[in-house]
Design a binder for these strands. Structure first.
Lengths: 310, 310
DNA sequence: TTGTAGGCGTTATCAA
DNA sequence: TTGATAACGCCTACAA
């Protein structure tokens, strides 16, 4: 592989001149031509590793993700990558298998590989190590979850308004009793989504019936159970909203088992259309998270931080 | 950040000794202790970038993938990563957005970042650039597709036997007319799956009815159309097999629209269970690709190549 | 076994 | 503007 030295010799200048030319400094026109020729002739390519040794910049961003097969997460990562790529950055995706221990290990690994920044889809224990990383001067951006006890840039969707709008739509369709299948009370996102549910009831002067609110968890089984609980009530809701993808799946499972017709038997609204609509028989209204925009925001935040470091 | 030099000074030895210790050479017991202490005290970490500059090894493998949101592909990548990680390698996933031009660009980028090897989920045009990369001494392993005109390690699933076994199972359930929803004739995988279909008919002395074989494409719409074509025949099959994930989705769509009962109206078999079974109402038999094993094989091949380079 | 010194391919500094 | 040269952090002969 040709080096700067070779190019310099071939072009009859010094390595310094070549390096400066490579980095966009102004040099004499004749040298410019000679160097360009030499580079082409020798098929010279800069060695980013060597460059990094000096500059301490790899132009690589690490993305720590809980599961590479999570459609929701990868969709966002795609969007992040698209934007970062425009600005000359590359993405290094690492899957931590929903394992906090591995998460820490992989984070360290990414740092060792000298990524310029870290983007994390955090677990509940992320706060511990993220703190250290951030203090070492590496920008950290957190996606989608709030990490309690850790201050940094983060992008959350507007959970409050997502549910607000969904319920509002149902109100306008004349539904008055709307069931909510939500995560547990300790879950950050669940809390926000509940807030939206409450707020829209207030704004529309609808009274809040606690029995219509199920906060059993964000997993599929909870969705399944919550749906049946709601449906089997003495005075059941006329519409039900599932607050994330997995509970939506559970809800569909229940609907299938009971052979219910939508919207004749009940109206439902799901969350995150990740290819569902094609295989599900029932006409399903789905709340879509703006994954594209989330990714773009994350990238923007990261780029801002990276610039600040100069 | 502490360097070897600092450690050497702290431990009262030379950098050479520290380096040798770091790389597993035998040194005097007392020095070993001193160095270990110094490393802990200074929180020293080797700088992999600097090391790479000398060794030309990054212990990083690039994975080029056509779509980060393809469940099938990411499932395999997970398995690859798991194995490579055991051997101290890291995975660098790059999404080329099903865009051959971008594919080439990202491949170059990965090489520039000095990955030790490249794993590719190829497109139809991959052969061109992969050739060059391989010749430059970087091991290349290709997943899932044969790349015509390019010889290298690759892992394919046993498409022939996958369909063979599926049809055999249906035969044993007394089905005699089995429809096949397959990709186009030019598609490598489709050809193999057709071969399995033919072979099992031969082995079981069943005559082959060309009308039962639909080779319209691997996309969802083709699956949808092919299914209806088969179902609406004068003498329709009693069972139908869809040969990949997308055609399976199309088939389900058709089944839903016609309000068919499975297996009363017809028996069906799909491909790749990527979360389908939970949301689909019908009892669906599914041919599962051994993604776990594919990934493991890919990793093994890559590791073998990497060793050979010494 | 250890220390010294040179080199890996860049960039950055400082005279000229 | 340019050239020479010293870093960057590590590895590895070679000599001791």
């Amino acid at each position: 592989m040709a080096t700067i030295k070779d190019v310099a010799k071939e072009a009859g200048v010094s390595v310094g001149t070549v390096s400066r030319f490579l980095n966009g400094a102004e040099i004499k026109e004749r040298n410019k031509q000679n160097i360009t020729h030499a580079i082409e002739k020798l098929k010279y390519k800069v060695n980013p590793i060597a460059r990094c040794l000096k500059t301490n910049k790899t132009h690589t961003i690490g993305v720590l993700i809980y599961d590479l097969t999570s459609l929701y997460a990868t969709t966002i990562v795609k969007s992040i990558e698209q934007k970062m790529f425009e600005y000359g950055y590359n993405i290094f995706v690492c899957d931590y298998w929903n394992n906090p221990e591995l998460e820490y290990k992989k984070a360290k690994l990414l740092i060792e590989k000298m990524v310029d920044g870290l983007i994390v889809f955090p677990s509940s224990t992320s706060a511990n190590y993220l703190h250290t990383i951030q203090q070492s001067g590496i920008p950290v951006v957190v996606v989608d979850w709030g990490v309690p006890g850790f201050e940094c840039d983060h992008v959350l969707i507007d959970n409050v308004n997502a549910i607000y709008d969904a319920v509002e739509r149902l109100f306008k369709q004349n539904h008055k009793k709307i069931g909510l299948i939500n995560g547990t009370k300790s879950n950050y996102i669940a809390k926000e989504r509940l807030e939206g549910y409450k707020r829209v009831h207030q704004d529309y002067n609808m009274l809040l019936n606690q029995k219509l609110i199920k906060m059993n968890g964000f997993d599929k089984m909870s969705g399944y159970k919550s749906f049946l609980d709601l449906f089997d009530m003495d005075d059941p809701p006329t519409a039900i909203i599932a607050c994330n993808y997995d509970t939506t799946l559970g809800m569909i499972k229940a609907i299938n088992e009971r052979h219910l017709s939508i919207p004749e038997d009940i109206s439902v609204m799901g969350f995150d259309n990740l290819g569902l609509s094609d295989v599900v028989q029932q006409p399903l209204s789905i709340i879509v998270q703006p994954t594209k925009e989330i990714g773009s925001r994350v990238a923007t935040l990261m780029l801002k931080r990276l610039k600040k470091r100069f």
